[in-house]
């Protein structure tokens, strides 16, 4: 591979290969730690307890303790316990997690009132959706107004800037006492986590509008009312769309905290439940599911952008370069 050069652009083939490699490399690392016995493997998985009374098949032992017991057994001429090197239970091998991605959907809920995985996921998606929609209904117009009109900006942005630093989960208890224990407080946390960033980001995007377009529109006889709807908004729309994609990603990062508030629900309920039973492949599967949904949604929105904004070449270029 050629040496790194600042600003160097890549051939599409190379870009695609590197993008693929960015997923393959961590996977290879994980496989190495899982499948090569002399890489890490700090524990011994007992296959035959021998004469040690507290050993059981399937038990994971510290390597040093196991050796001590083996030495004792050898000295006493009793059956020697057997075992193979193993990783801690919280690090399942890749194949177990990939399998869990499928079996988790096929496994019925453990309790009567429990949910199937797809039901949990659907619940999480709904929480994200409503949180993001409510935040956007308020945040997008306010952001545009702040960006377009200096008095509105000065009147609202300093406070928004302050509020942005208050961590959304801090409002959890408050949200529960106001909105109850079900979906209300969860949606509220996502709104609080998204809204304030949204106003500032969209205000900045609006301020970056090419002002010569506004002047051109003025000389064509555009009045103030139509300036906003016919010039400012269409001009910033591709950038606004890109901001919304980034903000939707942020909304997802608030999901787990939000779902822990009140009654635990959705994918978080699934993850915590599985962790309690030490079904770690399922835990990783649940976490990976969030990534797959988030990444997939963003890729779809990126594809959609190419249809929505045919005049915007930078979106097409950016999208073409970033995904395989």
């Amino acid at each position: 591979m050629a040496a790194l050069r600042v600003g160097q652009s890549l051939a599409p083939r190379t870009a695609r290969r590197l993008a693929l490699l960015s997923f393959v490399l961590p996977l290879l690392l994980w496989s190495a730690v899982s499948y090569i016995p002399f890489v890490w493997h700090p524990l011994i998985l007992i296959t035959d307890p021998g004469d040690v009374d507290y050993f059981q098949p399937g038990m994971r032992m510290d390597r040093a303790d196991f050796r001590t017991e083996v030495a004792h057994a050898v000295a006493a001429h009793k059956p020697v316990p057997q075992g193979v090197p193993a990783n801690p239970i919280y690090l399942p091998p890749p194949h177990a997690v990939f399998l869990a991605l499928f079996t988790a959907f096929a496994t019925p809920p453990a309790t009567q009132d429990g949910n199937w995985l797809h039901e949990s996921l659907w619940h999480s998606i709904q929480v994200i959706f409503w949180g993001f929609v409510i935040s956007s209904i308020l945040g997008v117009p306010l952001g545009i107004l702040c960006g377009a009109y200096a008095p509105i900006s000065k009147l609202s942005e300093p406070f928004v800037e302050f509020f942005r630093y208050l961590p959304a989960p801090a409002f959890g208890a408050l949200a529960v006492s106001i909105l109850g224990i079900y979906d209300g407080p969860k949606i509220a946390i996502i709104v609080i986590g998204t809204f304030f960033q949204q106003v500032l980001i969209i205000a900045n995007t609006t301020r970056k509008l090419d002002f010569s377009l506004v002047e051109a529109a003025l000389t064509l006889g555009t009045d103030q009312r139509r300036m906003l709807t016919r010039v400012v908004i269409p001009a910033i729309l591709p950038d606004l769309y890109r901001d919304q994609r980034i903000l939707l990603g942020w909304a997802w990062t608030y999901l787990i905290v939000a779902e822990l508030i009140g009654t635990t629900s959705g994918i978080t309920w699934f993850i915590t439940q599985q962790a309690r039973y030490q079904h770690f492949p399922n835990v990783y599967a649940g976490i990976a599911m969030i990534g797959i949904i988030g990444f997939g949604t963003d890729a779809l929105l990126g594809l959609l952008a190419r249809r929505l904004f045919p005049w915007e070449r930078s979106i097409a270029a950016q999208f073409g370069a970033s995904t395989a």
Binding site: S212, L213, E215, A216, T219, L220, V231, P234, W311
Partner: peptide
């Protein structure tokens, strides 16, 4: 009064 600017200022959308 019509105006033509140095930059093209066409509406790209």
């Amino acid at each position: 009064r019509g105006m033509v600017f140095q930059g093209y200022t066409l509406f790209p959308w």
